[in-house]
């Protein structure tokens, strides 16, 4: 075989390998989407009984599923806002000021990132029980803030590493006070890091199963609703809602970053 032919064969082989990996990643998604059109009505909803759009209509009649989805969105929104504010302030504060115990705080940041989620979940469960905070929306939000704050801080900190302190000094010298300087000078520079951190916090919150499973009480989130339904077979309306969420996210991302696919760099 010629050298060129060999290189071509190698490239082809690489392409086939990548396709197989993508197939692996998308296979269960295909199963979910196909099953959302399955006309079956008997548990465990596995055998194919023909094509239907019914489940997309039945979503709106399933109030417990909609409630769970609503809870997920509320928890994700509130915990993302809290984690983003707390994390951004914290990252800047820890970058600018020296104080006692800073090293400890810095070390604690890595714990939610490396410790298995189940340990974080049960530790929150035990402490909430001990201080008698009733489990529900509040404990879910607190738990989600606790595991997303570090990710916000890491993202903001990455922006801070190239940060030029003199622009703040200039702002103060020109007569702006600290608060104005923070909002008008510091924040715009950090914005991409903050946005990245917030997006990550939101994603983590929406998908969280393990930690929520221990601190939810009677409040159901969408992943917990799925977990509950797995025992009896996931109904096609759950598949339908999952399909809608996926399509919605893709549309949202394509709209916000439409430049991403067109432009090269």
């Amino acid at each position: 075989m010629s050298r060129k032919g060999k290189a071509k064969a190698k490239k082809g082989l690489g392409g086939v390998f990548c396709m197989l990996v993508y197939l692996f990643l998308f296979l269960p998604i295909v199963v979910i989407v196909v099953n959302s059109f399955n006309a079956t009505t008997s548990k465990p909803y596995l055998s194919w009984k023909g094509f239907t759009f019914d489940w997309y209509i039945k979503i709106w009649e399933n109030s417990s599923l909609l409630d769970a989805f609503g809870n997920t969105i509320i928890i994700a929104a509130v915990s993302t806002i809290l984690a983003t504010v707390i994390g951004t302030l914290g990252a800047v504060g820890m970058y600018k000021y020296k104080f006692r115990g800073k090293g400890i705080i810095d070390g604690l940041l890595y714990i939610p990132v490396v410790i298995p989620e189940i340990v974080l979940g049960i530790s929150l469960l035990t402490i909430f029980t001990n201080v008698n905070i009733p489990r529900g929306m509040l404990t879910l939000i607190l738990a989600h803030v606790s595991f997303s704050v570090p990710y916000v801080i890491f993202n903001v900190r990455a922006r801070l590493s190239g940060y030029d302190n003199s622009i703040e000094e200039a702002s103060l010298d020109l007569g702006a006070n600290r608060i104005t300087t923070f909002f008008e000078v510091t924040l715009p520079v950090l914005a991409p890091g903050i946005a990245g951190g917030a997006l990550l916090a939101f994603t983590l919150s929406i998908d969280d199963v393990i930690i929520s499973y221990f601190v939810n009480g009677q409040t159901k989130t969408y992943p917990l609703k799925v977990m509950e339904s797995i025992k009896s077979g996931v109904a096609p309306d759950v598949n339908a809602l999952s399909t809608l969420i996926l399509v919605g996210t893709i549309v949202l991302v394509v709209l916000t970053q439409s430049g991403l696919f067109k432009k090269k760099r």
Partner: peptide, 15 residues
């Protein structure tokens, strides 16, 4: 793929 809940994707594998 990770924008779809991980539980339901694992259930997809089971199916």
């Amino acid at each position: 793929p990770f924008w779809t809940n991980s539980l339901i994707r694992i259930y997809g594998w089971r199916t």
